[in-house]
Design a protein around this nucleic acid. Sequence first.
DNA 1: CGGTGGTTTGATCAAAATCAAGTGAGGTGG
DNA 2: CCACCTCACTTGATTTTGATCAAACCACCG
Lengths: 239, 239
Amino acid sequence: MPLEAMIRKLKVSNELDQHDINEIRALPIQMRRLDADAVIVRERDRPEQCCLVSEGFLIRAKMTDRGKRQILSIHVPGDIPDLQSLHLHVMDHDLRTLSESVVGLISHEALRKLTRSRPTVAAALWKESLIDSAVFREWIVNLGVRPAQQRLAHFLLELRQRLTAIGRYCDETFTLPMTQLDLADALGMTAIHVNRVIQASRAEGLFEFRRNEVHLKDLKRLSELSGFDPVYLHQRADL
Amino acid sequence: MPLEAMIRKLKVSNELDQHDINEIRALPIQMRRLDADAVIVRERDRPEQCCLVSEGFLIRAKMTDRGKRQILSIHVPGDIPDLQSLHLHVMDHDLRTLSESVVGLISHEALRKLTRSRPTVAAALWKESLIDSAVFREWIVNLGVRPAQQRLAHFLLELRQRLTAIGRYCDETFTLPMTQLDLADALGMTAIHVNRVIQASRAEGLFEFRRNEVHLKDLKRLSELSGFDPVYLHQRADL
DNA sequence: CGGTGGTTTGATCAAAATCAAGTGAGGTGG
DNA sequence: CCACCTCACTTGATTTTGATCAAACCACCG
């Protein structure tokens, strides 16, 4: 049922009619279970299909010539993290699993056929990639101007918002299968510093982060601190 | 002739047939001259048209609640920096001129009509927005992992590459109407530090930057230093 | 001329990186 | 069942990078 997750996700920002939905449901999809930390596509690959997340967490990341890694985004069920490969034929970054995951592979051919036959779906997918872009912009702001603690808080609040939209956030708690080193590579800091920021935040009663579980304890102060404003996620107002 | 610049730009990454090109040429466009540092659209606006750059430089930027500014991207003739507004109705950032500029405004309505009648053009525009996204990703890497001097060098080399594609780079020299403060806001550092990095780079014979003119003196060392690799710009191989 | 915006310099400070050891929990094999 | 291994996390000491503060300087412009 990963296509259901995709439909649900698309509906977060798009209007689709029954016909569109039926055509999406009819997409040929090849399910695949993947271990944690498995490579899905690598920089410079030329994939022939897109990857729809069904279960688990994925990241996109880029390595520099100096051997440093920058995590570019984190992906949750319903996302199609390599949708861009439909038009950009060479990958400019890696796509990997964070945790054990289930993904559905959909061939570019099938997707292209769908976008030709259903312009509304094409527009919805285009829009998804534009939201993806908006998330990158906010990530730039996060790295560029926010100090470490605010940066982490903002990251967590974004994730909270996105997980809420797919019904995977409740009791102010969610799963986040990232090590402190992963967080460091996402937030442009060192693991040691991430650790110190986590401890400081814990001491201040902002949130707990233990064994891949995040528990947000003071949403109000977290959003003041981080300046998180969900406008850039372009979700429908009624969510 | 700003539509010619757009066509030229689209051709950098796309194949368009004569019919497509004719339809693009037929787009109704309203030309406008703008002063330096003029606002085109602001965060939270809901624009009804897109802005095609004809002459000059534009930036996209976001302000935080703390009053800090992060520049997200820089735009040159041929770009449509707010193409995303076609599908994302609320602006999540500002678009302003850097220098005195000429832009062409094209209504969303006309663009939507064009994308419906010419699927190839729709795909080309989608692809442009995906390249935009790829540029954001590299910007994230720049902010996240590269130290100040490499960061600036990378920024300049990207600009060089993009200006070359539109024929505005020659003799290893190009116009860059940014103050050191603008550079600072783009690169996530302070103007003072930008100044020191520029001076150091000048002393090392890497480049000169005076009165809005950049002169690259040692391309080889600049690219080694910055690790610049143009793959992410997704330009056609034959450029 | 004096203002103004941009650049430059120097001195000091703070945030985060780096270096160097730990601890501690879970998993494996003897 | 326990020794031990590994990976993640934690702590402390030290250094570096870049930020902040303060004050010129300089060129262009009205």
